[in-house]
Design a protein around this nucleic acid. Structure first.
Lengths: 266, 266
DNA sequence: CAGTGGTCTAGACCACAAT
DNA sequence: TTGTGGTCTAGACCACTGT
């Protein structure tokens, strides 16, 4: 209950967060092309991350902060709001803005949950097993929201870490969307290629389940028949709401688990 | 490529979205306690959801919209921004604001991924197997960010649908946090109880994996030994960043899969 | 009561995209 | 060049929290 890092200034009132923890040297550069609210947000985030703003400490009111920085209150609010959205700050009416009592400072960039896997530094490698177009099956057409029989690009890949298979990935993309070079796929990852082609990924709908391995799956993934597998189907949408990718993935449960962060919508 | 529901007004230019799709009857009630930007956001969302604003259609510029509604531009922007954050609208500089080309209109309230399960209408039932306090183990203490040996509330539950077990749930909460009545737990769900106690859930860190069932697990869940199980560990945080719950759950993979939506952070 | 964030206004200038 | 969203300002009043 009383885990605030408080420094008492006198009196016997209950250990309320010190009303002022902000004598930090924030400053904005008006000649920079970076928006002012964004500069401030970055400085606040950095101060929180490096512990210069302690968890639970108050930020000082917005008007005073605006005055000190030579900014208007709406600009300061925009900066603070962006950090509230990130879960680093909490605002309470009549109280003030405080730094979260965090454990999870960095909510983990769950950009794709897949690049994460790749970025997780397990010396990953990819073997492209198949890369060609075919007419969309009913399942794929439904997932991508296109007509059955339309040409789609099919990619089958084996993901390896430390020389051992970890996952089998099968992805479908609308054929006109992108030129997919197998060599580049093996080194860069599908999502990065799509971003590089000017596609702005926005959201993904996923389903994660489990089942036991068939004999063939076991052979491909170097697991015994009957071993537990994690399965995942995902449809990814760009910022205009168009489906740009559908995939069915199989992971060796002995070597991989999904980790992610959920944000509760207010 | 040309899937806009365009009505040509003459000329042979390429089928660009009609510059104006907004002759709808938006109106705000200034005597209402509901914020103006929120009223507008709701009306826009409703219009999108019911198809009165077609996917891909333009919204008309902010200033004109503001004038038509008797609102200031920042207020209109705030309304639009909230829908952009929800993924219903896309803004493009120099172009305008358009309705997303969506498949996934309702990004699905992934409030807890657990109430979802309960709300999914599978006539769920819960049997509380255990509900008492004990000293925190090292694992639990680490997950909750409290001292090892602190008292924690332990809840073991069996989740049933259609009279058959679907999941085994074990949860740990800081002991002072909440009074948990077993009877209420069986009818209401843990998350709803926490919200009812004034706890504002904010985010959760999850790990999802798979393994095969042991003999005892099989017996408890009515699965054969060696069946595939989905496992989940989760720590939930409130809006001040304090861990308020840690749980380890086991699901019958034959009867359950996780579904959720990821948002790509810009 | 005083102090905080929540909302709202009426302007302004800029950067970018299309024509 | 025109029109769009992106940013910013300097005020204002209200609702809520604490004393």
């Amino acid at each position: 209950m009383s885990d605030f890092p408080v420094s008492f200034t006198g009196g016997y009132s209950r250990p309320v967060p010190k009303p002022e923890s902000a004598s930090l040297d924030f400053a904005v550069d008006r000649s920079s092309p970076v928006p002012l609210y964004y500069q401030l947000a970055q400085q606040l985030e950095s101060a929180i991350e490096h512990g210069r703003l302690a968890p639970g400490s108050l930020l000082g009111n917005e008007i005073e902060l605006a005055g000190r920085l030579g900014l208007s209150r709406p600009t300061v609010r925009q900066a603070i709001q962006s950090l509230v959205d990130k879960g680093l700050l909490v605002r309470r009416r009549g109280i003030g803005t405080q730094v979260v009592h965090s454990q999870v400072k960095r909510p983990l960039e769950l950009s794709s949950l897949y690049d994460d896997l790749q970025a997780a530094g397990q010396s990953p490698a990819t073997r492209v097993l198949r890369n060609e177009t075919e007419p969309a099956s009913a399942e794929v057409a439904a997932a991508l929201g296109i007509a059955e029989g339309s040409e789609v690009q099919v990619i089958e890949r084996l993901r390896l870490t430390h020389g051992e298979p970890m996952a089998y990935l099968c992805n479908y993309l609308p054929a006109e969307l992108l030129d997919l070079d197998s060599a580049r796929l093996e080194e860069t990852g599908l999502y990065r290629l799509m971003r590089g082609a000017g596609i702005t990924l926005h959201s993904a709908r996923q389903a994660v389940g489990a089942r036991t391995a068939t004999a063939e799956e076991g052979e491909q993934l170097m697991e015994p028949e009957g071993a537990a597998l994690l399965t995942m189907q995902r449809t990814t949408y760009d910022d205009t709401g168009r489906a740009v990718e559908y995939g069915t993935h199989i992971y060796r449960a002995s070597r991989y688990a999904f980790e992610f962060q959920l944000l509760v919508r207010p």
